[in-house]
Design a protein around this nucleic acid. Structure first.
Length: 829
DNA sequence: AGCACGCCGACT
DNA sequence: GTCGGCGTGCTC
């Protein structure tokens, strides 16, 4: 395959392109170029191609060449969508790396990378053939139903028909109708991204002359007073602002659209359509960075710079509220001064207006924001601005590693330990932090990882000098670390001082905070009301019909919910197994905490922040605004409250039950618990006042809790590393886990065992399992997990992956493996 | 991911 | 017998 540059001249050569389709298929496909499009093709442009019998897809050109494929006749491409490539060569190379490293297909990476408005698949549209008369009495019931529906609604999709007929196989019926010329089937892809346009009004320069204008005004005032009003309104607006939009003018004049139209016809006004951005904030930076770095920050900044001389990656290990963001701002300023781009990664949940506003103050219109709460059109606009280098800085969540940067100089990964950097479903199962390090390498850029509680992988790399390490141990502005008090739940239960789930200590601290007009955050790592409903007579618990989990009772819907597949059912009044009415709620979630607290403290303004209350587009922001404006006294939340919340008046943090964290059956449980507890604690008393953290637990002497109290990350790290080493876990070993799924548990058992045996032929006792995961059935698929552990420096991980891939491919050719889904997960979380 | 083709159970 | 579900293979 040749590069585009070598075949650029329009000519009569027959060209072929290799394209990436946005599908989970392993190959790229080759299409032929019609002669008249020879000049238009280039690597990185999107094309429309037919794939399969009828579907049209947007594909991306990965290579251009002259050799016809030998084994088949290539189809022609249908259309070239772009004037200039929307995907850069560097990005294509990056996609390739992600696909190989995370053992998935290029198409899956493409799906994660491109905003969906840039990758359209066609949908089959069913319409009546108006040219053709037909006899309704000749149709059978189903055909009649379809034509009737099309009389009411001129266009239907396949899934509409499926619903209409209540059956899955509809194509034979549709094909018959098509053959009888009664319906038309059409496949269309239309560009979904539409730039937003706005009409602006300018004054004919003739009337910039005051005499001419006065003359015009006098005429208008007599003959068309409304038009005179419009002219006056224009004069007023144009003094206040650079551009006058038509709709603003209509509003200002109160004269209606007609008068403006007349003035345009008289050539007093000129109308001009301009493409405007949906993103807002075109202003320049309001002020340069006026803040002063503390001596500790200055020292850390100097150290970061020094490490960057020799190291590609630096870890900034800074305690919560040590002012890491200010360091980032300085580094970003320096980098964009050299003309290079900066990517600033944050976990989705931390991308609040708070941090966005703060950075906009310094970087104005040169900073772009990219996250999942943006709609498609907005995402395309960010994509294009990055492509055209209009954005120098991008602040974004995990998927922003896929933006079309030209020249990255620096990537900042804040809260680098966050598990949300890892995507799990759908593939690619990539970790944005690790992918960012590779991306930086491609651009010759530096990476700064920031965290108060670094992941052990990162800390290990830093301590072994692979990464630079900078420690920032002082809280900015001399804010003290919070006082942590551990409360034994069992002791308070014995003393009968617990009020439902709240210890006397927590109740007292909350009361004190509220008295001082301060705020409280309560952390409970479980949503819903009660995770288990159990019959007291026969111990029956309602389970999900699709998954192997008990259903959680949600009070606001009064239904039982499955947190894995979304299934809901009515809460039974009597036990479905034995008919007893003695049903008991076991365990508790955020809803119940809220409920109980509203009884104990009836006058306090409560709010809840969990997946259920933040699902819609603006709800998270609303909760945060209310907290900021002190419309909330106590916020109850899941993990979410641990991340990136920064409010001055929150002085008390309550961890309702630390045991659910500590008892989690995973080798990382201690690391996770420490991170979670210390991140949540960090939310207390950030400005001016020492905060208080109350940790409620049945196990107050737990080692991790001690380490959290003493703020001794290093001690945690060193003790845990001993275990990691002896039990062959990261960072000493790399893990690749393989999920095997099947609807039938017996087949799954046999096939997973067989695959493991095949893998053992290559990797011996590096293969562990298959073992059932914590939840061994999700959405009706039974699951087994095979784990492979590779010593860090022993084997070539690339060779191992190639072997695994071959083994899986081999496995999938066997008859018995049919119906098995195989999902590799590289560096799983 | 679709869609076609072919096998097989259930219902006229 | 036939209709429709479901498994399986292929798509440049």
């Amino acid at each position: 395959m040749l590069e585009f540059a070598e075949v650029q001249q329009p000519n009569r050569k027959t060209l072929f392109v290799e394209v990436i389709l946005p599908l989970a298929i392993s190959l790229n496909y080759t299409y032929r170029i019609p002669f008249d499009m020879n000049g238009a093709v280039a690597v990185g442009k999107r094309v429309v191609v037919q794939f399969g019998k009828s579907k049209l897809y947007t594909a991306v050109i990965a290579a251009v060449g002259e050799h016809a494929p030998e084994k088949y006749e290539a189809k022609y491409i249908i259309e070239v969508l772009d004037d200039a490539p929307v995907v850069t060569q560097k990005q294509l190379a990056f996609w390739q790396w992600v696909a190989e490293y995370y053992m998935c297909n290029a198409g899956e990476v493409m799906n994660a990378a491109l905003p969906s408005a840039l990758k359209l698949a066609s949908e089959t549209k069913i319409m009546l053939n108006r040219e053709h008369e037909y006899d309704k009495t000749q149709l059978n019931d189903k055909e009649y139903l379809i034509t009737e529906a099309l009389d009411i609604q001129p266009e239907l999709t396949i899934s509409d028909i499926v619903k209409l007929l209540g059956q899955k196989t509809v194509m034979p019926i549709l094909r018959l109708l098509f053959e009888k010329n009664i319906i038309i089937l059409s496949e269309e892809v239309s560009e979904r991204y539409k730039p937003r346009r706005k009409t602006y009004i300018t004054l004919n320069p003739v009337y910039l002359n005051p005499d001419n204008r006065r003359e015009l005004f006098e005429i208008l005032e007599k003959r068309a007073p409304k038009q005179a009003d419009s002219l006056l309104a224009y004069m007023k607006l144009s003094r206040q602002q650079k551009n006058v939009a038509k709709n603003e003018l209509i509003e200002e004049s109160g004269a209606g659209e007609a008068s403006i139209k007349s003035l345009i016809e008289k050539e007093v006004f000129f109308a001009e359509q301009k493409v405007i951005s949906r993103l807002g904030y075109e202003d320049d930076a309001e002020e340069s960075s006026v803040f002063e770095l503390s001596p500790a920050q200055q020292h850390a900044l100097a150290e970061v710079r020094e490490h960057f001389e020799k190291k590609e990656v630096v870890l900034l290990h800074g305690v919560t509220a040590s002012g890491k963001t200010q360091l980032y701002i300085r580094l970003i300023e320096e980098m964009i001064a050299t003309g290079r781009q900066v990517l600033y990664l944050l976990p989705e949940i931390a991308l609040t207006t708070h941090i966005i506003e703060r950075l906009r103050i310094y970087f104005g219109g040169t900073i772009g924001v990219y996250h999942s709460r943006f709609n498609d059109n907005e995402r395309v606009e960010v994509w294009q601005k990055v492509l055209r280098s209009e954005y120098k800085v991008v602040l974004g969540a995990r998927s922003s590693v896929f933006l079309p940067f030209h020249d990255l100089g620096l990537i900042i990964v804040d809260e680098e330990h966050e598990t949300s950097y890892k995507q799990y479903d759908p593939a690619p199962r990539y970790n944005a932090r690790d992918a960012a390090i590779y991306l930086a390498n491609m651009h010759n850029a530096k990476v700064l990882l920031g965290s108060a509680t670094p992941s052990f992988e990162t800390y290990y790399n830093a301590r072994s000098s692979k990464y630079g390490l900078v420690e920032l141990t002082e809280r900015y502005g001399g804010v003290q670390l919070p006082a942590i008090e551990v409360v034994s739940i069992s002791k308070e239960l014995k003393q009968k001082t617990m009020q439902s789930h709240f210890s006397s200590v927590l109740m007292a601290d909350m009361a004190l905070a509220l008295e001082n007009k301060e705020q409280v955050i309560l952390f409970q790592n479980r949503r819903g009301y009660a995770p288990v409903l159990m019959c007291r007579v026969c111990a029956h618990t309602p389970k999900c019909i699709n998954c192997d989990v008990s259903l959680t009772y949600h009070k606001h819907t009064t239904k039982l919910h499955c947190h894995y597949c979304g299934y809901k059912e009515d809460t039974p009044a009597v036990c479905p197994a034995c008919g007893s009415t003695h049903l008991e709620y076991k365990g508790f979630g955020t809803e119940k905490v809220e409920d109980e607290l509203s009884v104990l403290m009836p006058d306090v303004r409560l709010a809840r922040m969990d997946l259920d209350t933040t699902r819609s587009r603006n709800s998270l922001q609303t909760i945060l605004n209310n907290l900021e404006e002190k419309k909330i006294d106590i916020l109850i939340g899941t993990q979410m409250v641990a991340k990136g919340l920064d409010f001055a008046d929150v002085t008390v943090i309550g961890i309702i039950n630390a045991d659910s964290l500590l008892k989690y059956p995973d080798y990382r449980a201690n690391e996770r618990s420490y991170q979670m507890l210390s991140q949540v604690s960090g939310r207390a008393g950030r400005r001016g006042k020492q905060g208080k953290v109350v940790i409620q637990t049945y196990d107050p002497s737990h080692r991790v809790i001690k380490q959290v109290i003493e703020n001794d990350y290093l001690d945690l790290y060193l003790t845990e590393m001993e275990e990691r080493k002896s039990f062959h876990y990261p960072p000493f070993y790399r893990i690749i886990s393989i999920d095997v799924k099947h609807m039938n548990p017996e087949i799954l058992y046999n096939q997973a065992e067989y695959l493991a045996t095949e893998l053992r032929k290559h990797f011996g006792d590096r293969v562990i399992g298959p073992e059932p995961p914590l939840v061994n059935r999700i959405r009706n698929f039974y699951i087994k997990t095979i784990m492979l552990k590779f010593e860090k420096d022993g084997v070539s991980i690339n060779k191992a992956k190639a072997l695994i891939r071959d083994t899986i491919t081999q496995f999938q050719t066997t008859k018995l493996s049919k119906g098995c889904i195989i999902q590799p997960d590289v560096d799983p979380y």
